[in-house]
Amino acid sequence: MKKSVKDLIILENECLNDDSHKIVFQAPDVDSDILPGQFANVLVKDSQTTFLRRPFSFYDVDVDEKSFSLIIKKVGDGTRKLCSVRPGEELSVIYPLGSGFTTPEKDEKVLLIGGGSGIAPMMLMAKKFAPQTSNIHILLGARSQKDHIVLDEFEKVGNLLLTTEDGSIGEKGYVTNHSIFKEISSFDKIYTCGPNPMMEAIGKIAKDNNIFCEVSLENTMGCGFGVCLCCVTPTQEGNKCVCTDGPVFNINELKW
């Protein structure tokens, strides 16, 4: 579908925990072309500090209801303002942007790994491909139980595995300490989004075991559609824009 910049009506703003909200946008033109990993770039109104738009991966896209939802974590003034938006109000959004994750083949065994805000594209990934394979495992990592959000929704779409750094829910440690990695060679594909150190560690395991692995990078962006050249990451073919050549990259493309 074509990229566009539009004022979209907010349908819902659900508080998930102290930090995060799920915000549902009415988007009359959404279609099934939107891929997991693609993102929307949202304008913040009336912020002294937030001048540029803020990018968020699609968490869910509902083609029948003509809506999509984003998960927004309060980090600074801009995201705090976005989280205080009320249903009926409008926000300016540029969408859909970036590249998506590669579609897994039918019946491939897939591991989705999300950390922090990186859980968002994993939901769309799981929902989109759940019908064609029963072999989706979803591993989510967080600091503590209170930082794990939307677990009930994830439970519906795959085999859910959890870690916390303090051991308050799931296995204790980082996602890469989870026992599923003992059987990692049984997986065909790994998809991940989260903090860079987490994705680098996962990428290394994937490489060592010769498993296909895609990561979604979160570099700071200026425009989101490939013209400012600010969000670049070094690749085997030189600097590439995370916003248009990515945010999804195969680990073999990166200089990790």
Binding site: Q48, T220, C230, C231, G238
Partner: peptide, 23 residues
């Protein structure tokens, strides 16, 4: 030209700094 290393951009009050370096 490959341009400068990331980070090349900083958001500032009512504006931004860039150091793309003519990639």
């Amino acid at each position: 030209r490959q341009g400068n290393d990331y980070p090349r951009m900083a958001e500032t009050p009512a504006g931004m700094l860039n150091a793309v370096g003519l990639q």
